[in-house]
Design a protein around this nucleic acid. Structure first.
Lengths: 139, 139
DNA sequence: AGTATTTTGCAACAAAGTTGCAAATCCAAT
DNA sequence: ATTGGATTTGCAACTTTGTTGCAAAATACT
C-alpha cells in the first residue's frame, strides 16, 4: 500500500515523478471525481501546466477516465483495477452528480443498460450521468 | 411557419428581438446540436456576449437543452414542442455524438432506459450520450 | 556516476466566459 | 403613431481555462 501510486505508474510504463505520485495520491484518497481545478487547489506546489499534462497522460494510459457532466466541468476519476491491468476500458458504470453538494461519484455497481440505436448508427461508447441528490446529502 | 421563432419567444414571454429570432432560426434550421462557437460562426453580426446571454436565456426558459458531451464542448439543441409548451422538460432521449463528423444529434425516438440507484440516491435527471459513427458517416 | 531521455516550470499566448455600463431597441399605454 | 419605462444589446475590460515552445531539472538506463 505504501507505494501504490508508484506501482501504478510503473505498471503503465510511466516514469515516476513527484508530481505524478502526488496527483495519483490525491485520486487514491478521494471518494469522488475531481476537476482540474480541484487538483490545482490541493496540489498547489505544481504548475498548472504540469497538472494539465499529467491528467492528459493519465487519461491516455487509462489510469483515469473523464466524466462529461451537466455542470460543464470535466471531472476525472480513477479507473477500476481491471481497467488499468488490462489496458481496456470497461467504464460501463453510471456516474452520479449531486445537485446539492456538487460531487460526482462513480456508481461502480450500477452498469449502463443497453440501448438499441436506429439503423445506421454504430455504438462505440456510452456515457450515463444521473443528476439528483446523493446519499450523503439525503436525510 | 412564417414567424415560428417569434411565436416561440412570445410563448415563453420573451421580448422579440432580431438576435433572438436569428439564433432561434439557426436552431430551427439545424438537424444537429450546436455549440456556442457554431452560432457565433453563423450569426456573425451579433456580439459574442449577446450570444452567450441569449443561449443562457433560452436554457432558462426551456427553449433549448444542453448536452454534456465527451468532447468537452457544450452543445445545445431545441427542446421538443412538448417541452416548450408544458414548461416541463422531458429530455428523456438519448444523444449521439459521431466520432467521425463530430455532430451531435438527438435520437428522439430512443428513450433512456431506467436504472436502479443504490439506497440513498435520488434521481432527478438522466443524461445518456452514445459515441460512435452516425448514419451519415457510415458506409 | 555519466549520459540520453523525459518531465517540469516559466513565459507568452489563445480561447472561452463574465461583468458593468451607456446606447439602442422593444413594448405597452396613451 | 408617439412617448416613456423596461429590457436588451454592444463595447470594453477583465477573469478563467487551456495550449505551446523552450531551457533547466529530474529521471532512467547502462
Amino acid at each position: 500500500m505504501k507505494n501504490q501510486g508508484a506501482d501504478i505508474l510503473k505498471g503503465s510504463s510511466l516514469s515516476v515523478t513527484s508530481s505524478r505520485k502526488a496527483i495519483l495520491d490525491i485520486f487514491l484518497g478521494s471518494d469522488n471525481a475531481l476537476a482540474h481545478q480541484d487538483i490545482e487547489n490541493i496540489a498547489k506546489q505544481y504548475d498548472r501546466v504540469t497538472i494539465y499534462r499529467t491528467l492528459q497522460t493519465f487519461l491516455e494510459k487509462g489510469i483515469i477516465h473523464s466524466i462529461p457532466t451537466t455542470d460543464n466541468i470535466i471531472k476525472y476519476a480513477l479507473c477500476s483495477d481491471m481497467c488499468i491491468t488490462t489496458g481496456h476500458h470497461h467504464d460501463n458504470h453510471v456516474h452520479f452528480l449531486c445537485d446539492d453538494c456538487g460531487k460526482t461519484v462513480c456508481l461502480d455497481e450500477v452498469s449502463i443498460p443497453n440501448v438499441n440505436l436506429p439503423k445506421g448508427f454504430v455504438k462505440k461508447e456510452i456515457n450515463m450521468v444521473v443528476n439528483g441528490i446523493c446519499n450523503s446529502c439525503q436525510k
